[in-house]
Design a binder for these strands. Sequence first.
DNA 1: GTGAAAGCGCTAACAT
DNA 2: ATGTTAGCGCTTTCAC
Lengths: 345, 345
Amino acid sequence: MSQRSSSSEASISNVAALAGVSTATVSRVLSGRRKKDDELSRKVKSAAERLNYSVNYAASALRSDVTNIIAVVVPDLSTSMYSGLVQAAEAVINDKGKQLVLGVGESAHEQRQRLHDVVSRHVDGILIVPHETESVAGLLEEIAEHTPVVQMFAQSYSNHLDWVGTSNSLIMQMIAEHLNAAGAHSVAYLGNSTDSVDGMGLFTAFHMQMTLSGLSTRTEWIRFGAGGMDYGFQEASRIFSQGDQFPESVICSDGMTALGVLAACRSSGIAVPEQIKLVVLQDSELCAESGLSKPSFTAVDIPWRDIARHSMDLITKEHESKAWLPTHLEVEPRLIIRESSLIAS
Amino acid sequence: MSQRSSSSEASISNVAALAGVSTATVSRVLSGRRKKDDELSRKVKSAAERLNYSVNYAASALRSDVTNIIAVVVPDLSTSMYSGLVQAAEAVINDKGKQLVLGVGESAHEQRQRLHDVVSRHVDGILIVPHETESVAGLLEEIAEHTPVVQMFAQSYSNHLDWVGTSNSLIMQMIAEHLNAAGAHSVAYLGNSTDSVDGMGLFTAFHMQMTLSGLSTRTEWIRFGAGGMDYGFQEASRIFSQGDQFPESVICSDGMTALGVLAACRSSGIAVPEQIKLVVLQDSELCAESGLSKPSFTAVDIPWRDIARHSMDLITKEHESKAWLPTHLEVEPRLIIRESSLIAS
DNA sequence: GTGAAAGCGCTAACAT
DNA sequence: ATGTTAGCGCTTTCAC
């Protein structure tokens, strides 16, 4: 009995005719603005279904200025830094019946360009990891006057707009507490500027946390460099070879760096985790039990899904009060404790 | 003398009024359908600029059914497999003045869902890495009757539609020629089903190439498994420990597997590349000189940019002739020769 | 080549 | 609560 679904045209007036009501009623029923679930409602819905009807977004947008499009703007995709975020955002946006327009702006100029493009498309909202440039923050404030904007991560962002991200100080606090509990009293820091969400911010938070926690460090144990296995190996070897003591733990920007440190430990005859505990600031396949490293690495996991969900909530909720204050939402990261920092028994 | 640009409204009629022409003329000039570059043309353009005018896409789409949106549908982003492709596509699409709607469908069902969504948005074209299911191929053929579709990669795709990707047999041919030139006469194969663009297709191509080239292999040297460092280590160790001979080269699905193989070589006292040459089917940071591995790994690089560009060309070009034949475009991959397969001197 | 006018499909305002 | 009507901004006939 099923008829071949006419995959092409079917407009609201066809549905209205078939259901025996006006187009306005069809619009109200299908958009959910008419809430009753009575005979009429069912008649309209079944008519729409039989005709395989779906609204013409262009017409709807033209009339109501609601495009059902959310823009997501990130500085990069290929380095896998933000691809998890974009994928999470895609899922959330589709759940809400909207669609995701992607903008990748590797430079501040490109990012401004993408912003201009999506604004002229009248998107319903913008999720953005702002480029590390103040000029973008300024542009965002202008845009936010007529379009919901949520910033995510980034060093340089506007305090006048909603923000969702992880707290650098919270990350460092979790790490410090864990290292304390695991019996480490001193720590080295091998940071990275290019491949972390906010390398500088993390480094600053590390410094501050050192003064708060019982952990000690030394100037020569701190490096803020390019990351990578060579980097980790060389810096760790240097640390081990100089002075009378070596740190009881090392914080590494990423898994590769940690692998380098691990190699240096081995060639210096230092046991992990018994003598040195390793913590990675950014989880990856490398760190996991099933991954490359033996021992596996304790690492910080950024909850992309939570961030995407909260950001969309902020986009969706209208800013009702006139004296609206920007939300600054710190999503709690997870510290995944693995073999590299187990408590010495 | 610059006036504050009114960031908000400015419609085609405003431009028409300011330029002293009709809206029709403005539309023709700005869309490029009126080609003369005379006084009138310049008047219109400067008026548009002064008003900071940009077309209302919704209105334009409603009238002309051109949305200036290209959909890109992929099975995944987070595993970094297709994020390079998406980023390349974003760049190309933006160059053409269009915008990218992203659909991530991890299952065949989700992918069909995303396809339905973007079709009902009347996108100007669809770039898709089809899910490995025939049902998607069928749906694509239906869609292609009214919307340009280009398939990329994937085992299971429709022969009736345009396709752009890399040639598995070409990849294997390049590898075989290189290994021959480097002096290897035998080869093992450690494949991977989950993390490569088309694991099965590559494996098949490998088999065929063996019969064509001077390379020999053995049944027990061939594995088609999960990939990863453990996998590589175990399989390579097994190969080395059994029989009288070991292969003079190993083809690995990915960098991680190759690292495992390398570790196995070390513990068996086999020198790379002197005694065994290593080739990786999918380049990554791991493989590069600056990366983790010493020696660096010779690897196949997939030219995402070329693929994205050619795909967009196919979307854009109308299929003029009635007896149109689908394009099957094989983009040439690069074999990046690094230390792991240098010719023994 | 240019302008006048119709109308794409929908939703908001208004009227009942 | 439902129907009637207008009109969102643009492109495209159709005249000239």
